[in-house]
Amino acid sequence: MKFLLYLILVLLLVPTQTTLLPYLSVWGIKPDLGLVAAACIGLFAGEMDGLLVGLAIGWALSLFSAGELWVSLLTDGGVGLLAGFLGRQVSQVTFATLGVGVLLVSLASGLLAIVNFKNVDSAQMWWIVESIVLPQACFDGLVGAGLYWLLSQRFDVTRLRTE
């Protein structure tokens, strides 16, 4: 059952990210739903699930991106794993803490990705950080917080995490 849910999530994530999200982009920036999903699964289902689903999401999304495969695998898998660990250290997760957490991991993954860019000088790198990486991290944080808020309205998220 769980495997099926994860499979559906990965299959639906790709068309949502590549076809539907461009309509919701703000100044050409769209959120990275793969990263948000990996973070949420790591938080609620633990490190192992976060890592495996993050890797699957990273791989599926990299098939439909010009980016390098290893960057997607490391960022999405790493975020799932990290979210699982951080979820244990924070006694009470709120939509605000989740939003800030997703913002920080999105920022880290964006910086990791641009370090891999070739032929980019420091001025261009700074432009990418302030025009793409930072706005996307804020967007990801908002989407993560919104998703957590929606889940908290529907489920008892505290029990979901602690049991």
Partner: peptide, 24 residues
Amino acid sequence: MWMVNSRSSSGARLVAVACFALLL
């Protein structure tokens, strides 16, 4: 809740870290 029972044990945690380190 399918997610309730799926929290990782400490063994699974170690396996996850080991898998990620191996992949890295």
